[in-house]
């Protein structure tokens, strides 16, 4: 018996297939694009091909993410907050603070000792500090987004991008380049700006974080520069990054599918 979780985000559509023992049997991540139904079909096909099972072998499917109601054959839809909290408990047991930065939103989730969500806070007014923001910054710096994470290596300045509006920040980056500011210093300033905003989200859900296990999920967790800036900001040596931070929401959805089918 297998359980499928599908996370339809604004940038990527992810699927995780698990078995009865919670082992990840297959996973897939594809760009969501403008036709999310196609993305859903593609990740479903991917995990079926990888695992060699048929659709009838899937006992239950839970969808999550902003497009969660687009999955036609779902058995339930659960928000990404609950799914990420569930997924991270499996990937990094004992996590009490989860920072999830995805394509168009960022969130901080305070998880209780029993694994339940105690509180959460999300970016509300704009997509600053999210994957979309990083895409715009990579464009302004003329680097591949995959290279953005290491771009700030060796940077020392206290520069912080003053504006977190994606459009204004892009203009600011262009101005800094024009003024001769080194690319790595700009990258550090950008990462510090994201960290500062994320720090505020974390403090909204937990005033005291000392001693709590902090983890990060979402595609932006793969950006080492942002993670370094967050460690600095949160004054912590360790932010746990699961092996596949970008599929934690889908993993959580699959785990919920399994629980509901028990």
């Amino acid at each position: 018996m297998y359980f499928l979780g599908i996370d339809i985000g604004s940038l990527s559509c992810d699927a995780v297939l698990i078995d009865e023992s919670k082992n990840v049997v297959a996973s897939s991540v594809v760009p969501t694009g403008v036709r999310n139904l196609e993305a859903i079909a593609r990740v479903t096909k991917d995990v079926l091909e990888q695992s060699g099972i048929s659709e009838q072998d899937i006992a239950s499917t839970i969808s999550t993410g902003y497009g969660r109601t687009r999955v036609a054959n779902r058995d339930g839809a659960v928000t990404e907050i609950t799914c990420h909290a569930k997924g991270i408990q499996e990937a990094v047991p004992g996590t009490r603070i989860l920072i999830d930065i995805g394509g168009q939103d960022s969130k901080a989730i305070h998880i209780g000792e029993n694994g339940n969500v105690m509180d959460f806070a999300m970016n509300d007014k704009c997509a600053a500090g999210t994957g979309r923001f990083l895409e715009a910054m990579a464009r302004a710096l003329e680097v591949d987004i995959l290279d953005l994470g290491e771009l700030d290596r060796g940077a020392q300045s206290d520069l912080v991008l003053s504006s977190m509006c994606t459009v204004f920040a892009e203009s600011e980056v262009v101005s800094l380049i024009a003024n001769g500011t080194e690319q790595r210093e700009i990258a550090r300033g950008m990462n510090r700006a994201i960290a500062s905003r994320t720090f505020s989200l974390v403090k909204r859900v937990a005033r005291e974080i000392d001693g709590l296990t902090i983890s990060m999920s979402g595609g932006v967790a793969l950006n080492s520069g942002v993670v370094r800036a967050l460690r600095e900001s949160l004054k912590t040596d360790t932010i746990h990054i699961p092996e596949r931070p970008d599929t934690i929401g889908a993993l959580g959805a699959a785990l919920i599918a399994r629980e509901r089918n028990a």
Partner: peptide, 13 residues
């Protein structure tokens, strides 16, 4: 959509 997600997450919590 943003509000719906927050309402749902809050009630799930």
């Amino acid at each position: 959509g943003q509000i719906q997600t927050r309402f749902e997450a809050f009630t799930e919590m």
